[in-house]
Write a protein that binds this DNA or RNA. Sequence first.
RNA 1: GCGCCUAUAGCUCAACCGGAUAGAGCAACGGCCUUCUAAGCCGUAGGUUGCAGGUUCGAGUCCUGCUGGGCGCGCCA
Length: 561
Amino acid sequence: MKDTISALLEEALASLKQQGLVPDDVSPSFKVDPTKDKAHGDYASNLALMLAKPAGKKPRDVAEALVQALPATDAVSKVEIAGPGFLNFFAATDAVAQIVPTILNTGDTFGRSMRGTGEKVQVEFVSANPTGPLHVGHGRGAAIGDCLCRLLEATGYDVTREFYYNDAGAQISNLALSVQARAKGLTPEDPSWPADGYRGDYIVDVANSYLAGETIHADDQHVTGAADADDLEAIRRFAVAYLRREQDLDLKAFGVEFDVYFLESSLYRDGKVEQAVQRLIDNGHTYEQDGALWLRTTDFGDDKDRVMRKTDGGYTYFLPDVAYHLDKWQRGFKQVINEQGADHHSTVTRVRAGLQALEADIPQGWPDYVLHQMVLVTRSGEEVKLSKRAGSYVTLRDLIDEVGRDATRYFLAARRADSQLTFDIDLARSQSNDNPVYYVQYAHARLCSVMRKAETDGMPFDRELGFANLAQLEADQEKALMNRLARFPEVVEHAALNREPQQVAQYLQDLAADFHTCYNAVKVMVEDDALRNARLALGLATRQVIRNGLDLLGVSAPEEM
RNA sequence: GCGCCUAUAGCUCAACCGGAUAGAGCAACGGCCUUCUAAGCCGUAGGUUGCAGGUUCGAGUCCUGCUGGGCGCGCCA
């Protein structure tokens, strides 16, 4: 419908140009938007307002000329000029209702497009260090990242989900020392406990498993505990494998799976870190100072230069990051999105600066970043800070176990990444109308119930009869619902291109509200065969779109509640 | 001190490339179940979009300055 109106306006615009009312070189990016107020029709355009200045006329006069020039069509029943010069389009009921067969004929693919034309996109997200269980912040990253991937896939991109494991840095040495200390029976209270050691109870589990000689299956590798508390290297390998497996299990329980697990250690093993260093030195962007090797990132917008090789010969985390991103580029990803916590935002400038310094024809501003703000968890109005297992933070596993996968995913993905999120456990658990997840799922279950009723009453949906009588869907609530359904594809595209999964959640709540309103206003199971089947068709279409939308969020669509 | 994010109804949040009278839910108040799931619906009330300027036909949205909140400013990641 929106496209139809845009096309009509394009023709009218061409006609005005021909008449000499508008200069030929004007091609405004005008909008055709759904109206907020029914009095303004179904769609409104600002084209006349955009043309007023170049045409040297009053907006309303331009609007008048546009209306005159609009080609005839039976999709639109009425066009009005309103306000400062908006064109209000009233869609013909028949035309609006055509969305119903469109949805039912395309089914699961309704809302999908080939906008991305199969282009490769990589989304890196979660990327937690294998030093402990995933926390709520990782959960937010997982929910946002995975929904983004689903949106991009629905928009026609070839998506790779990637998880980067920092398995080579100082944090890992720290982990090994902590597990070793536990294996030797030390506790964090002991004076010889390693400085900055990990204190959570899970370290005890790792140590016990190691001492018991258990075998860990993580990814493609199997690591068996050497049971030797003095073999720090064996402890390190075992602990990393153990925690990676644990994180994988949590992510699986959350419905998130990755295509590629990229290990930081592989960058060292394959010489990619060395190559990156050499390239930066060769390009003349480095200098030695205080016994360290620095990269002049200030040449590329950073506020201070950064150390890349420490006085002890080791590299700072930032250098493998640069090497890693060069590798992404060389793998052919013209589009890369990094989803991370905003507490790491300082790496954005740094990594981009490092990539520019490589002089590898990587565009400025590559890669994209989606940064999410902190998550605060509350219960009974109080902040929850501790979990026994992890110590100082709430784990993703805690949330999934307590409130369920659907509610956890929905809550973590339904807010703009930019704003801080308060995760209210009581609200997420509540099976009541103040819980948005249930509100949407209930709409789906209710529709399933209607369909079941149609079957059991011996009046199953007759597709041909339904499609033939869609013009009978004349109630305001039905028109509003159909207009909402028609918007789904643009919502998907918009959410994908702007990297804003929360728009899908917002849309679903609006759609569910439109449906519930309709449900209360209009009875589906009426005697009149024609009318009943038209309404069943609308119901099925609504159910399909709710299902498609929930699927983009990775949330289930229950048939009964 | 500097950088990034943020401020919208009592609360939690929306608002598509700048569009018409800023929208939902919760909480409050009043209604709707002998009829397809009341986990629902209808209605009432609730706003100087943090403050002050600017840009223009038009600003919650863009620009500048302030104020409050979060995060960051390591040879940690």
